[in-house]
Simulated scan of single mutants.
Amino acid sequence: MEPSPQIDAEELAKRVGLTLRKIRQERELSLQQLAEVTSVSKLTLGKIERGDANPSLAIIWKIANGLKIPISLLLNENNEIKLSRKHEGNNVLSANEACTLEPIFDLPTYGSSEIHRAFLKPKSQYSPGAHQLGVIEYVTVMAGELIIHIEDEEYHLYEYDAIKFQADKVHTYVNPTEQTTVLHFVMTYTKS
């Protein structure tokens, strides 16, 4: 089976919008109620649902955290078998464009875990903040180095080192090198 081609930003925006509207309607939330639980403006949420806005990674995290869902759910694809090759799937940029996150396998339903590749630019940092309560992150450095700040603690990881932590704490990823750092994320979610 051939890998699916990377979709463009417009198609991704439409997909995120349709999925968000479906989830909001399933939960019987108004746009105003969704804005309150996600801390994203009603205007922005309306644009996302219509596919008129291409949300940044920060906005997608806010929505996922507010709804207590994995972000890959917002990038949903419904394939039985899927091959995931780097840079060929969906990807989302952080607001400062320092980090590109690629869900490795999109989840067709509300899942309890998700897997991502991330590419952190040289001499940059990515600060997702704190995720929803109960999220655990497993991060492995596949290439390069990573300094991760978890609240007041700092951890320096090298190629193939891994760390597990409660991601409902404020955390920041820093690439201290002149090369792109490649990360592998597994995130697990507790049922709420």
Rank of each mutant, 00 (worst) to 15 (best):
M1R: 14
P3T: 15
I7G: 05
E10Y: 11
E10F: 09
E11F: 14
L12G: 01
L12A: 09
R15K: 13
T19M: 07
T19F: 09
R21P: 04
R21D: 06
R21S: 06
I23D: 00
L29Y: 03
S30V: 15
S30A: 06
S30E: 14
L31P: 06
Q33H: 11
Q33P: 09
A35F: 06
A35P: 15
E36C: 11
T38F: 02
V40I: 12
T44Q: 08
L45W: 02
K47G: 10
I48D: 00
R50T: 06
G51T: 09
A53Y: 13
N54L: 08
P55H: 02
L57N: 02
A58E: 12
I60R: 00
I60C: 02
I63G: 00
N65K: 04
G66R: 08
L67C: 03
K68E: 01
I69Q: 00
I69T: 02
P70F: 03
P70S: 05
P70H: 03
S72P: 03
S72G: 03
L75I: 08
N76Y: 02
N78V: 06
I81H: 15
I81M: 15
I81Y: 15
S84L: 05
G89V: 05
G89Y: 03
L93E: 01
S94P: 00
E97T: 07
C99H: 09
L101W: 07
P103C: 01
D106I: 00
L107I: 13
G111H: 02
E114Y: 04
H116L: 07
L120D: 00
K121L: 03
S124F: 06
G129K: 01
A130V: 04
H131A: 10
H131G: 01
E137G: 05
E137L: 11
V141S: 10
E145F: 11
E145S: 12
I147K: 11
I148A: 02
H149Y: 15
I150K: 04
D152K: 10
Y155V: 14
L157K: 09
E159F: 08
A162K: 12
K164C: 14
D168S: 11
K169Q: 12
V170T: 11
T172E: 13
Y173H: 11
T177V: 09
T177Q: 08
E178N: 14
Q179R: 09
Q179A: 07
Q179P: 10
V186L: 12
S192V: 13
